[in-house]
Design a protein around this nucleic acid. Structure first.
Lengths: 213, 213
DNA sequence: TGTTCTATAATTAGGGT
DNA sequence: GACCCTAATTATAGAAC
């Protein structure tokens, strides 16, 4: 059946999201069952749908978390999420490099333009006090060409990266948040002798934070 | 370096849990970045440590969830977690099959034993009114041997499965919970035009529940 | 504990139906 | 959407350091 290009790409993106969501919920199930962990997951899709998972029960876990927070001693050894941080770094560095080059290139180009203008206005090509400066500008202009190429290459790279992400997200987006996405807490904790049971014997004690990942 | 068997197995188990936890947080990061989803994850390890993840921020997501819940229209189309359900089914069916065989085998064995006892008491081996029944019992005894073998095999299989899970969990456990672990909600939702931005322009609208997995 | 390594198993993308 | 298929990527267990 025919699908418009946009519809077609949307279908693909939807598929990806569904697959990843399914994947994460599956992993959560495995973590619960195989490791006896209590897990709560809430996902708001870009389109705003809500997907939740809880073992043994989402409310139990959320309540444990809230209760834990209320009596927290030290909170939130924060650690950036690896993937997000990595991307942020890549993006930010690329952007910085791009800006540096642009500034440099602009400066050099202005010098070169000014030189050309002056030479044209004076209708001359040699013998003045600025000869040295002109040569310097020429040198810089050749250098500038290299920079310009690198700059263009970089701009293309960044744009490609952004496009890729636009495609992946199916949305327009701003620059990635440098905000912390992964936080680990030192809180009183919940234990159960019967992780696979009905969790009637839940207890609280004290625990330690741990980077975990 | 020497490790006691228990210490050794605990090391392995810890490793597995850490790996799975790391895996799920990585997946969550990917889901956030690649799909522009807002995600919150809380994990209480069996030992009670707390591991949290949030994009763009765990509190934002939890608050969105809570706010959503407060104005929910229909809540919680519930669906069993696939993995848990699958395991439960496997376990329950195996146990049922085991019980059936045991019952059958016990009945047949009783018949056979009764037959032997009677033959011994009467010190005879043929010619009585129950000959037909005896033959039947003999037949059943041969059949019983087959059942017994299957039964033992099954018992062994179930026990192995249970042992495996004990090892995987590092804990004793009851039978798996048939409880629901995966719930999906129909709630007002959060959208953002700036999923990768600072989320200042979060809005709420209405959404639909979705099985998702 | 934590790291690295490798083989195996599982997940994912993208294409269909 | 739900499935199926294949290739390619990624995750995981277990061992050894």
């Amino acid at each position: 059946m025919y699908q418009s290009p946009q519809r077609s790409i949307n279908t693909l993106l939807l598929k990806r999201r569904r697959r990843r969501r399914a994947g994460i919920f599956k992993k959560a199930g495995e973590l619960s069952v195989l490791c006896g962990a209590h897990v709560a997951i809430i996902v708001f899709s870009g389109a705003g749908k809500v997907f939740c998972y809880g073992h043994p029960n989402i409310n139990t876990v959320l309540e444990s978390y809230q209760n834990g927070l209320s009596s927290v001693v030290r909170v939130n050894e924060e650690a950036g999420d690896l993937l997000v941080a990595e991307f942020n770094k890549e993006y930010v560095e690329a952007e910085k490099e791009f800006e540096d080059l642009k500034r440099k290139a602009t400066g050099i180009k202005q010098m070169a333009d000014e030189k050309k203008k002056m030479m044209k206005e004076m209708n001359m090509s040699e013998g003045f006090w600025w000869d040295e400066a002109v040569d310097l500008a020429m040198m810089d202009e050749r250098e500038w060409e290299q920079y310009f190429k690198a700059l263009e290459e970089l701009r293309r790279k960044v744009a490609a990266r952004v496009d890729e992400l636009k495609i992946l997200n199916g949305t327009m987006m701003g620059p990635p948040v440098p905000a912390v996405h992964h936080r680990l807490c030192h809180v009183p904790f919940m234990t159960s002798n019967n992780c696979f049971g009905n969790c009637q014997d839940v207890q609280f004690g004290s625990g330690y934070h741990d980077l975990g990942v």
